[in-house]
């Protein structure tokens, strides 16, 4: 692959803390290699800012190989930037050309308040999982793994849903700030497997109730979530969640605390 060097203008959201008002700052970066990742370009910029005595830009990142789900930049009007099926950390600078202006914003949703600069609070996702995103099996209870044969097609679908990394791009992209793709991925993953069957009804109802409490919106099937999902989780999972919700809601006599 041929590589090249570029100079870029960056417009980045800076916000000192949750309470303060943020604003966009403009930065110039020079001699950026097309072989760098976007975050490495941010490393270069931060080193430059530190050496100038300025505050570096805070952003979430950890594994830098597209699997931990920490990185979360909204780049040029798209969560995780222009590449399809890619996390911010895997977005490489060859996606840009010399002289480009890159606008970087944090995930925007009331349920994801900004902590600082590009760092947002996504603990709402943990609380949704707490509401039922698991199979209740205490350690030591398990039977031999091969006593439960699982149809390959179902296992593959469950795996595809389980690939969710909990980054929140779906919420960031959705015009309603809905977390339904995230919730649906977990509901589908567990509903498709026989192990998840006993808690199937309560799981979907509790998770949807928690999602609503956290202040996420509802789904209009614009499919923007699927388009930006770094793991390409399909919106058909949302359909499956709806089916689960209907079956669970009609079949269960328990209250779930919807407002």
């Amino acid at each position: 692959m041929e590589h090249y060097i570029m100079n870029l203008t960056l417009k980045v959201w800076k916000q000192k803390n949750p309470a303060s008002n943020g604003k966009f700052e403009t930065y110039q970066v020079k001699n950026i290699s097309s072989e760098m990742s976007l975050l490495e370009m941010f490393d270069v910029l931060n080193e430059q800012l530190i050496s100038e005595g300025n505050d570096p830009i805070a952003f979430d990142h950890d594994c830098r190989e597209g699997i931990c789900g920490a990185c979360s930049m909204y780049v040029n009007g798209r969560p995780h930037g222009p590449w399809h099926g890619t996390t911010t950390c895997q977005l490489h600078m060859r996606a840009f050309k010399d002289g480009d202006t890159i606008v970087v914003e944090p995930w925007r949703a009331n349920a994801f308040p900004v902590i600082k600069d590009l760092v947002v609070d996504r603990t709402a996702f943990d609380r949704i999982i707490q509401a039922g995103g698991y199979i209740s099996v205490n350690t030591g209870n398990a039977v031999d793994g091969n006593t439960i044969p699982i149809e390959k097609e179902k296992a593959d679908k469950a795996f595809a849903a389980a690939a969710c990394i909990g980054c929140g791009a779906c919420v960031a992209a959705c015009k309603n700030s809905s977390a339904l793709l995230f919730v649906a991925a977990k509901v589908s993953h567990l509903a498709l497997l026989p192990q998840g069957d006993p808690e199937r009804r309560t799981r979907v109802l509790s998770m949807v109730a928690q999602m609503d409490k956290e202040g996420f919106g509802s789904c209009t099937f614009t499919q923007a979530c699927e388009a930006v999902c770094p793991k390409e989780i399909s919106v058909t999972n949302i359909s499956r969640l709806n089916a689960e919700y209907i079956a669970g809601g009609l079949g269960s006599d328990k209250d779930y605390g919807h407002q």
Partner: peptide, 14 residues
């Protein structure tokens, strides 16, 4: 392996 299967870990299958 048994514990993980019971938790719903989607291991590859034949």
């Amino acid at each position: 392996i048994d514990q993980c299967v019971a938790q719903g870990v989607p291991f590859a299958r034949e």
